[in-house]
């Protein structure tokens, strides 16, 4: 099996080519060690994308999307920053195989 196409920032070109193994590879590149807490967010993003055909466009909207599903305890920027280093929306979307969030500079 050939590795799926990725763009210059490491995002999958085609979200449907994503597999958990690919998530594992991208996470390793990003120095993120995946735990069940990470997988919970990854599954959430996958289902968000399936339903809405967009990535949450920015960090703030990523937080809102998580809050809507999992409540305040996980839908806050500190929790998500601890799980996904750098810009959480970008790191999480990259690992979850979603397109790059449009408004994340």
């Amino acid at each position: 099996m050939t590795a799926p196409q990725r763009n210059n920032e490491g995002f999958l070109e085609n979200a449907s080519e994503w597999t958990p193994a690919i998530a594992q590879d991208i996470a390793t590149e990003s120095d993120v060690e995946l735990t069940e807490k990470h997988w919970e967010i990854i599954r959430l993003l996958r289902s968000f994308y399936k339903k809405h055909e967009i990535s949450p466009p920015s960090n703030r909207l990523f937080v809102k999307a998580v809050k809507e599903q999992l409540g305040e305890e996980k839908g806050n920027s500190i929790y998500l920053m601890q799980l996904f280093s750098g810009t959480p929306a970008k790191t999480a979307c990259r690992i979850a195989g979603l397109p790059r969030p449009t408004n994340c500079l």
């Binding site: 968000f48 339903k51 809405h52 055909e53 967009i54 949450p56 909207l61 809102k64 999307a65 809507e68």
Partner: peptide
């Protein structure tokens, strides 16, 4: 589908 995300945001 994009618009359906509007209330969440």
């Amino acid at each position: 589908r994009n618009l359906a995300a509007a209330p969440i945001f």
